[in-house]
Amino acid sequence: MKIEKEPISGQYGKFKIDGIDYRIYWEEAGQGIPLVCLHTAGSDGRQYRALLNDKKILEKFRVIVFDMPWHGKSSPPENTRVGNYKLSTDFYISQIMSFINGLELLKPVVMGCSIGGRIILHLAINFPDKFRALIGLQSAGHLDPYYDISWLHRQDVHGGEVCGGIAYGLMAPTSPESDKFETMWHYMQGGPGIFKGDLFFYKFDGNIGNEIKKIDNSKCPIYLLTGEYDYSATPEETKSLADTIGIEMVKMKNVGHFPMSENPKEFLKYLHPVLNKIN
């Protein structure tokens, strides 16, 4: 029987992050400019499957997606326990830089969604010279809590069910149901307390105030794209962020919080022109 093989290869490696060993899983495809993609809170690198299969992108870019520690196929550190996970800004930056240094990537492009869309702002503030460009999907400078995130990790509520339920609503009603289901399924497979632990960064530790003004787009080009159905990081909030930086933002129609996985066909229409600008 002939199968349809995808061009994606996966690998494990041990990375030292803040002095601790982590076994990290990543997938990659293509050749050329390194494009490191960061998944959303509580999910994993599978969200970028469409990019890893997009022939046009793979001609110019080496697309690389890693699962954050505790997520997907990447392991928690040794000697830890359930409930011990809380993503800080410093740890998030450290894991990205450790991954990039470990793979010896020179001036990569980094694209992140949601928490990834937030951390690229921190990268732009702190290490603008290290990146060829930064792409923020669903980026906002800060987010005040609008629901009680303790529901995401309680022993009397199934974590997969509630995390999936939260993720489902963040997608557009116009996105294909099969892609929405898979996006939700990734959330349903997350470990206990991991989504909640990531949101500590998203809603508290990673909030950026006036420091946004430190971002210098001339040092490292920044591109911001946000789906119109996202109510977590709304297009209005991304617009405000873009105005502060002094750049344009792109409002993507018919997609929500997970453009790359909930409606990849629509998303790629917006992403291709951005990637065309990067050399």
Binding site: Y146, Y147, I166, G169, A172, P173, E228, D230, T234
Partner: peptide, 10 residues
Amino acid sequence: PGSHDIIAML
């Protein structure tokens, strides 16, 4: 957008 989900309304 904003009316498509009960958490969005929240």
